[in-house]
């Protein structure tokens, strides 16, 4: 019995570690994806011929932290899409447990908040898993480098979710500026409080 328990602990602890370490890291090459946009078209990064990179943001409708950033994401796309770094928002949440995050509700929310960027549905949650996204919102900045997309920054949008007026560092803006100027991105990883991504139940039991 004791042996079994120890085995279980080892499995659990290893699981916790690998889970956190999974997904892309800064510098990794990121393959393209194809996901359904709220206008029912399929969107992939290769369609953006002039893009120098992308601000991929895992987000959703229901999470208060995602809501706090909606206006800031719209403003970010206004500023950076024309500079070659369009925003692509992806909602990976299980809409059975969280009906607010359904495809239909994504359309409604995008309209209410005048989203000026693709808002894609990651129905299978595969893309969120590939990226190693853990929370909403969770940003992955990609830059084009010799024809491939590489990860340049992972983390928070800025350093103050609750008070946009008191932001000291706008991490994504800073990272894009560094990429454009050919300088080193610093910091390349940041953390933020957010809602956990709501994984589907059958995946939970597989763990």
């Amino acid at each position: 019995m004791k042996k079994l328990l120890i085995m279980a602990i080892t499995v659990l602890l290893n699981f916790t570690r690998t889970f956190a370490a999974d997904g892309y890291k800064v510098g990794d090459i990121v393959p393209d994806f194809s996901l359904k946009n709220i206008d029912n078209t399929m969107v992939s990064m290769s369609q953006f011929k002039d893009a120098k990179g992308f601000v991929v943001i895992f987000t959703c409708n229901h999470c208060p932290y995602s809501k706090m950033y909606e206006d800031r994401i719209v403003a970010m796309n206004n500023e950076f899409a024309q500079k070659g770094f369009p925003v692509i928002a992806i909602n990976p949440n299980d809409d059975e447990a969280y009906p607010d995050d359904s495809f239909e509700n994504m359309k409604i929310r995008a309209k209410e908040k005048d989203f000026n960027f693709p808002y894609l549905r990651d129905e299978t949650q595969e893309i969120a898993k590939q990226f190693g996204a853990t929370r909403t919102p969770h940003v992955f900045l990609l830059k084009k480098d010799n024809g491939v997309l590489k990860l340049a920054y992972i983390g928070a949008i800025d350093d103050n979710a609750q008070e946009s007026d008191n932001v000291q560092v706008n991490y994504v803006e800073k990272a894009i500026d560094a990429v454009v100027e050919g300088k080193e991105v610093n910091p390349v990883n940041t953390k933020a409080i957010g809602c956990s991504i709501k994984w589907k139940k059958q995946e939970e039991s597989k763990k």
Partner: peptide
């Protein structure tokens, strides 16, 4: 700023709740 406490709690924490 809740962001500032994440690493103090654990470097394993990405910031997601719970």
């Amino acid at each position: 700023r809740y962001e500032a406490i994440i690493d103090k709690v654990s470097t394993e924490w990405s910031g997601a709740l719970p």
